[in-house]
Design a protein around this nucleic acid. Structure first.
Lengths: 323, 323
DNA sequence: ATGAAAGCGCTAACAG
DNA sequence: CTGTTAGCGCTTTCAT
């Protein structure tokens, strides 16, 4: 059977509370007993029972992550996988376990959130999506239960959230990629209902305005390769534009497919990117890594700080650096 | 504060043990009291504390999933995301929570496994990878701790595992796609060290032999689009082959890229596939959906059955149906 | 059919 | 500095 704190106490010749104190590294315990106890712990391979600890501390050391199904299919999934990796990495580092709940729809998200909270299983929740009038957010807010959102929420007060500075990044990218003296630039984006799209378009327009060039925006219905190709068809049917900002990986791939197919030359492209297109396209496209893993890392940091009471509502807008 | 079993007891005018019995639907409790207690539970929105329950029952209702980082990058990630969705789906259905541990390397996998087991946090473990001389498997076996592997393990005795019947599926595919009278067929696959590759090659060769055609095998170093394209270059440089079996999504994409670029006509292609290529290619390629979600579902079923003691070591080889 | 009480493994006062 | 004790919320004998 599994070794318990009691056996360690007996083995080390001390009381259970002393063992407990050694585990939490209580400074009041003498180095000599600490030594003794640690030796026993090591030798008997003792691991504290999380359940028992959680029961008394009212803290489990577990974080819950709500994954919306749409989010998985909406973007190309590497984004979410990478955010998850960031979450996992930082979770481990700060000694938290991560529990994921994949949800099929908004209702499941809400119910999953409630269930996780009410079962007392998690200390905090990470929401991977935001919606208009999000019920989960409302619920968590009312309960004052610690949570963080990956992405920019509609209502920003009293919520913890992490997102890239999409507006600034797009703005900077335009300035970098598109030289003065051009007369127009085209933005190719995905779903118009997403904050990420809105923000990038805004940054795009702002920069175009300052450069005094015409801004053309084309938004597809999703972020797929097919949409990228389709939008390219539409765009080039109109005019031989020369400057492009592409909002996502797969859109770019589709766009480039068109460009290559019809052998279009002398164009400038800036794109938000994660996958390794560099090898083939490095000389033609300015690629900006949006580092989804960092989003996960920061989300977890914010959340744990909040749980531990170390922080108030300091959100994190991550500046993507142009390289 | 959260409502406890005690408050339900008081509210319903019974003892805590009665409430507990109602929750576990103990047949000895009269319908009338059950009714009464359930009403209280409902009204006060009572949810049992998982930690407290876990402590006494020595069972947490949590499953741990070990995700190898390589696995995430090796294949195109949709595969794993979909397996995860299957795991989540079935987990929910059978009332289990899922805890994921993303690992950077074999060492982390082993340590993650140990930690999960030793903390008493999970009732069972799902391994998403197998390696030669896998330490995690050895550890879990020795402890007789319930676990399941997604994929075909090296050592098959006393382990629970789930995998597609890759040999049979490839065999069937050859028979379906390649008509008699041809003189050769090419298999395009990824990493040769993976069981999935070995099995598919075997099925391929077997079918070719029966059809009395020459079998040509080309394996890339990974399953990427780039490799698909590169292999196509190599293959077509040799000879104008006409029959192809492609082992994965991205390989196929790269292969088709080449085929389209050089306008190659009149070839037969069969491929294992998940993404929606159908729209563009449905008339040219025979696509076989390998349904990763099902793998996840079956893995969880096997694992939970094992935890509950309902099963011995009945592995599950899933037949992919040709449609 | 139901209640009383013990106890799962741990932490946190309280005492000394 | 360390031990004693109560109790976290629940399930499970053991009574009745």
């Amino acid at each position: 059977m599994k070794v318990t704190i009691k056996e360690i106490a007996t083995d080390a010749g001390v009381s259970v509370s002393t063992v407990s104190r050694v585990i939490s590294n209580n400074p009041k315990i003498s180095e000599s007993t600490k030594e003794k106890v640690r030796e026993s712990i090591e030798r008997l391979n003792y691991k504290p029972n999380i359940m028992a600890r959680g029961l008394v501390k009212k803290r489990t050391g577990i974080l819950g992550v709500i994954m919306p199904k749409e989010a998985i299919t909406l973007f190309s999934s590497p984004f979410f996988i990478e955010v998850m990796q960031g979450i996992s990495l930082k979770g481990k580092e700060r000694d938290y376990y991560i529990m994921y709940d994949f949800c099929k729809n908004e209702k499941e998200e809400y119910e999953g959130t409630k269930k996780l909270v009410e079962s007392g299983l998690v200390d905090g929740i990470c929401l991977m999506s935001t919606r208009k009038g999000d019920k989960s957010i409302k619920y968590l807010k009312e309960l004052q239960f610690p949570f963080v959102i990956v992405g920019e929420p509609e209502e920003k007060d009293e919520v913890l959230w992490v997102d890239n500075n999409n507006l600034k990044a797009t703005y900077d990218m335009v300035k970098k990629v598109i030289s003065k003296g051009e007369n127009s630039a085209v933005f190719i984006g995905g779903d118009k209902n997403l904050t990420v799209t809105t923000n990038r378009v805004e940054g795009f327009k702002k920069a175009c305005k300052e450069l005094n060039i015409q801004s053309v925006v084309h938004l597809g219905k999703d972020f797929s390769r097919e949409e990228g190709f389709r939008l390219a068809e539409i765009i080039f049917a109109k005019e031989n534009y020369k400057n492009f900002i592409v909002s996502d990986d797969n859109l770019l791939k589709g766009f480039l497919e068109y460009v290559e197919k019809f052998n279009i030359k002398n164009i400038n492209i800036g794109s938000f990117n994660r996958t390794n297109l560099k090898r083939i396209w490095k000389n033609k496209v300015f690629l900006l890594d949006i580092k989804p893993e960092k989003l996960g890392i920061e989300a977890v940091n914010l959340l744990i700080d909040n749980i531990l009471g170390d922080s108030k509502f300091t959100n994190k807008v991550i500046d993507i650096e142009l390289n």
